[in-house]
Write a protein that binds this DNA or RNA. Structure first.
Lengths: 149, 149
DNA sequence: TTTGAAATCCGAGGGAA
DNA sequence: TTCCCTCGGATTTCAAA
């Protein structure tokens, strides 16, 4: 993870379609060097995924909900596994307080939120309680911290 | 947004480096058709960004924190604008309850969290209170809902 | 709008320094 | 590791349907 890797990550974060040739010419190194670095970063798991960010409204998934979940410690692992497998659950974290698990969910509407996640929580052993934070407006959504602006 | 667009989005979500030729051959349409569709989706803002997902630990940004913020309604717009401009603030939402604004922050450690965000909140007019949810383990992080698993 | 072909450009790999 | 070189393949454009 030297400055070359840093620059590659920076460029790909902003636009993952950026050509190796472009990055290489800015860095003053060979295209094949950048190419191999990118592959290395991917194989090392530094870059987990090349993906896109969609406009949730324009793709029919406008409802973003964060949910804090209190669970029985003995069931935590399997609850997390189940949550991870749900397609509407985009993110799953363990936290310290005031819940045990915290997730981010994206659905088309409130009824899909209920059907795909809330009902599942209700019917899962070890779930003690859950508390939903329903978002109304999405002002910013990025995947990683970028240098400068 | 017909089935061709759906397939393109699906493919690019999983791997944004997928070649137009590959998508085209699976769909049974011309490469140039896929190419134009992708550009259209981007120009229409359906695809907001081509990006990468990084492993926060391996890139030195292991601390993910969610923060709920209560604000004076008169200051809300400018507070949101300020939060959006902070590089460590990855996501900004307005919500209904129990706060007004909800953000996701990624930092290298607790001290950067304080310096880059918490201190800013303290020194910003209109911020009434904030409550941080500190994550310990990241189990899943995706940008969009995908069909099937 | 989609297509198909043409021309340019890029990616992927091997060998040398 | 990085660089240079080359081939196979992808991107991009454009005229035509």
């Amino acid at each position: 993870m030297d400055s070359i890797d840093q620059t590659i990550i920076e460029k790909l974060s902003r636009d993952s379609r950026t050509h190796c040739t472009e990055i290489a010419s800015e860095l003053g190194v060979a295209t094949s060097t950048v190419h191999k670095r990118v592959n290395q970063l991917y194989n090392d798991g530094v870059i987990e995924q090349f993906t896109i960010i969609l406009d949730p409204k324009k793709t029919g998934m406008p409802l973003t909900t964060f949910i804090g979940i209190n669970v029985d410690e003995n069931y935590k692992a399997e609850i997390i596994a189940k949550l991870k497998s749900l397609k509407n659950v985009l993110e799953v974290y363990e936290i310290l307080q005031p819940y045990d698990i915290f997730i981010k969910v994206r659905t088309s509407d409130m009824s899909e939120l209920k059907d795909s996640v809330l009902r599942v929580l209700d019917n899962t052993d070890g779930v003690i309680s859950s508390s939903s934070i329903i978002t109304t407006i999405r002002h910013k959504e990025r995947t990683c911290v970028l240098g400068d602006q």
